[in-house]
Amino acid sequence: MIGTSHELCTMPLPDHHRDMEDYGKGVARWCPGCGGHSILAAVQRVCKDMQYPPEKTVCVSGIGCSSRFPHYMGTYGFHGLHGRAFPVACGVKFRRPDLNVFVITGDGDCCSIGAGHWVHAIRYNMKMVALLFDNGIYGLTKKQTSPTSPLGTHSNTHPGGSVLPPINPLQTTLGFANVSFVAQTTDWNPAHLYATIRKAADHPGLAFVRIVQRCPVFMRDLYGDIASNPDELIYLSHEKGINVKPGVAKTFKNVLAHDPTNIHKAREYAEITDGIPIGLFYQNIENSRYDDYGAYNMGMSNKVKQNAMEDMLDQYTIRNSIT
């Protein structure tokens, strides 16, 4: 830039550099040891790295422990109804392509009461990052079986153990029409968690990330051992996948090469139950996006609108009606 005048620089310069603090608000009220804390830190870091203007960023959630998330972000937020984060988020984005949208939803919110919207939000494929905080239990209502609770989970609604096999959110999402991005990560591997959300933020469509999350209060046993043993994770590796620094990658003993453009393999690996596969299962950047359709025809002038209205009324006007 030396020697060129300021006016010649066509790139708009940011008002100022934003730090992590610009994306935080208040003190998160999740239980100590809850996976929510590390996810919050990862999202704030992604926002900072992307230098998203906080006023142009909206976090939309449903109801549940995870859905308190927007209250802890320094952005705009919408803490709505149980199961209904997706319709609200899609409505936010439809006519506001300038906004960066995060959807925060839990396993009960997304896979049970809001399951219908989940199918369609994937199909709309509007550019946003959807984070499924999956701890396999209803926390805020105090330990009821969730649709992702493993078979036999003892809960207050199934004291003798749950009787149905759980929904596999990856397998399910990979079956929806127009799916364009499916990844999995865990709350206890901050480097991979960050890299996954960062990759999701770049995706031109709906990036669906299932975060395997610990609930230290109600599901201490579910991921307790796994979290302390990196060997339980299966690292999906590919140049087009989610890549962590070599030092971090080295810590994964189980590595599976997977090309994320291959949906058939993605569906096969989504069914792995022996260990937790983490990484990018599937990505397709060519899928149609409903937000492209929604942003059509915006910003028309009042004069044009008025003329169009007059033309429309002409069609209903009785000719020679003045006697």
């Binding site: 909206v58 919408f78 109804l81 609200v88 409505g91 936010v92 984005k93 006519r95 906004l99 919207h117």
Partner: peptide, 10 residues
């Protein structure tokens, strides 16, 4: 829900 999201944003 979609309408409410859109109204919130515009």
């Amino acid at each position: 829900g979609f309408a409410i999201g859109a109204s919130y944003a515009g």
